[in-house]
């Protein structure tokens, strides 16, 4: 009894710790006045209207969406061949590339941002949107690599053999047996990159922060000028996108399994 109560208290306290900043910011975004109030006073959607009718906020928001979408596609185009080559051929080159991808994810982000800043300056190709996209793609590519690898490994070889015995050629096997099994893993990998790229700040800022002002960069720039309720709207929007995206992943796939879980009971 005491044990159960302790367990519950621990979980509740952590849930409060994790939820509190989000709840407070969401609450503030519904204020009717310019001032920061919590709980909100004169509840209204005025700041949401302000956000969506302000071209500067809207351009930052849509720019973030474009960068994130293209970064996730680019990451997928890198991860899929590597994961396939590892699964099909145990290719050493592919294993090495997987290692490089993992290292780039593990470097401290401030160091990575300097690496990219130096690199794009060296190329003389500064302040372009593709710099941000490609930088995000290679930093986050390890995530779809992991999920797609998991997908390929969950393909039962007996199934592939059976298809071959029945006369299916390699292409047919890939299209009819492998693709349907791997597809949810590809999509979840892309969702991870999309959401992380959407929210990434320091690399995007160093690489092209003045020209390609994504939403986190705009929020940060405004932060230094003082409080504005529209910033809270941006935060709420991104939270909602995150909840939506990961719930979708949980719906189309097996989220606990995707994260490496395997209930041993």
């Amino acid at each position: 009894m005491i044990k159960a109560a302790g367990k519950f208290l621990f979980l509740a306290l952590l849930a409060i710790f994790l939820a509190a900043p989000l709840v407070v910011v969401a609450g503030v975004s519904f204020n009717g006045t310019q001032r920061m109030n919590f709980p909100p006073q004169n509840v209204s959607l005025v700041w949401y209207r302000a956000f969506f009718s302000d071209p500067a906020w809207m351009s930052a928001f849509s720019l973030s969406l474009i960068v994130a979408a293209l970064a996730s596609l680019a990451a997928g185009s890198i991860a899929l061949p590597v994961a396939y080559a590892i699964w099909k051929h145990r290719s050493r080159m592919a294993l090495f590339l997987e290692f490089v991808a993992r290292i780039s994810f593990l470097l401290p982000s401030i160091v990575l941002s300097i690496v990219f800043l130096v690199f794009w300056s060296w190329l003389g190709h500064v302040g372009r949107i593709e710099d941000t996209i490609l930088s995000h793609a290679v930093v986050f590519v390890t995530l779809p690599l992991a999920t797609i690898g998991l997908g390929f490994r969950s393909v039962d070889w007996a199934l592939v053999e059976a298809a071959r015995t029945m006369g299916a050629r390699e292409g047919d096997v890939l299209r009819t047996v492998v693709r349907p099994i791997v597809m949810p893993y590809v999509i979840s990998g892309l969702v991870f990159v999309f959401i992380l790229s959407l929210n990434e700040y320091i690399i995007a800022y160093m690489v092209a922060g003045f020209e390609v002002e994504t939403l986190p960069i705009k929020v940060f720039n405004n932060l230094r000028m003082g409080f504005q309720p529209t910033m809270c709207v941006g935060a709420v929007l991104f939270m909602a996108l995150g909840v939506f995206a990961f719930s979708a992943v949980a719906l189309i796939g097996d989220l606990p399994k995707l994260l490496g879980g395997n209930r041993a009971q």
């Binding site: 900043p21 910011v25 991104f238 606990p256």
Partner: peptide
């Protein structure tokens, strides 16, 4: 699944937005 979605959402939120949220949470006013 609920906990995992919750954790993934906070994980993916920009450090800018989280730092801002904490600033609001620790402010004198509210």
């Amino acid at each position: 699944v609920v906990w995992l979605v919750f954790l993934l959402t906070t994980l993916s939120l920009s450090d800018v937005l989280i730092a801002f949220s904490w600033q609001v949470m620790l402010s004198k006013r509210i």
